[in-house]
């Protein structure tokens, strides 16, 4: 279907956004890459009265390192995330996630801010930012506030964003030599949203023991699911087949997948177990020695 009728305004600054929102109230919708919003408008899932284009707002751009924090502007496109040297060095999980997101032409437009704001439960980047224990920087006319990624995703396509806020940036604690991360997923076709996926992050000490493990599953719930039990099963353990099996077993209580187009809950549980082993096996001593 063609898009419904709407007006278009380009914001050059955050002040423009606040003004346009004040003028148009709930009818105003932000558009960043448009790769989700414009697709859903073709289905007439919503009929905003005005699209506020935020892509020229300088304050929302750029990737920088401040101390031990990597700051990624909300307008950073998926393709940019995939080739940025600072991201590759300080948050390799995000770079590794990019090839799983849609297709090259879509990655050239879609932004990290749009992906996090939309909060699709099967999307890669929401799970990654939770796994990395990132912080979202939210801006509003009143200033900025920071929300931990794990508290940002509140339900199906729901977030902690208030109507007068937008996502300005994501702040990720920079990886250390002990940091390990991996993203794995199963999708029916390359570029599709995942049937089930896992973004994992942990630290491996010199003694081979795991600390601060964060296993975050996607496509298996209402949003990214931080698996508390599976993560706890790894804490303080030397990573070996036994530890992986313990995490897989604990996972049963962490996730409660709905049935969806792809299949029943038990299939998703199975996929999540398989993905757990796939991701963690990368950090087994033998695998690390081989790479």
């Amino acid at each position: 279907m063609k898009w419904p009728a709407f007006a278009y305004e380009r914001a050059s600054t955050l002040q423009d956004v606040w003004r346009l929102r004040a003028e148009h109230g709930e009818g105003a919708r932000l558009v960043a890459g448009g790769q989700t919003l414009l697709a859903t408008l073709a289905f007439r899932l919503s009929e905003p009265s005005v699209l506020v284009d935020i892509t020229r707002i300088e304050a929302l751009r750029g990737v920088t390192v401040q101390g031990s924090t990597l700051r990624i502007g909300a307008l950073t496109r998926h393709a940019e995330l995939g080739r940025d040297p600072l991201v590759a060095r300080h948050a390799p999980l995000l770079a590794e996630a990019v090839p799983y997101i849609a297709h090259p032409a879509i990655r050239n437009r879609g932004t990290i801010g749009g992906s996090l704001a939309y909060a699709d439960p099967a999307a890669e980047l929401p799970a990654c930012v939770v796994a990395l224990d990132a912080t979202l920087v939210l801006a509003s006319p009143a200033g900025e506030r920071r929300v931990a990624a794990r508290e940002f995703f509140t339900g199906l396509l729901e977030t902690a964003l208030k109507p007068d806020e937008l996502i300005a940036a994501v702040e990720v604690p920079a990886a250390t030599p002990a940091s390990r991360s991996a993203i794995v997923e199963v999708a029916r076709r390359s570029g599709d949203y995942a049937m089930a996926g896992l973004a994992a992050s942990l630290s491996l000490g010199a003694d081979g023991r795991v600390s601060a493990p964060r296993l975050v599953y996607f496509g298996v719930g209402n949003g990214p699911v931080l698996a508390a039990g599976a993560s706890a099963a790894l804490e303080g353990k030397a990573l070996d087949a036994g530890a992986i099996a313990a995490a897989q077993a604990a996972l049963a209580r962490d996730i409660d997948p709905p049935s969806d187009l792809h299949g029943p809950p038990e299939m998703k549980r199975h996929l999540a177990r398989v993905l757990t082993a796939r991701a963690l096996s990368r950090f087994l001593p033998a695998a690390e020695a081989a790479s």
Partner: peptide, 27 residues
Amino acid sequence: CEHGVCGACTVRVDGEIVRGCLVLAAS
């Protein structure tokens, strides 16, 4: 499809390929 799925609308904008059906001409 006009909703981003089929790629029939692939064109270059500023040197990079995009889905033309997911780009506002006004932008």
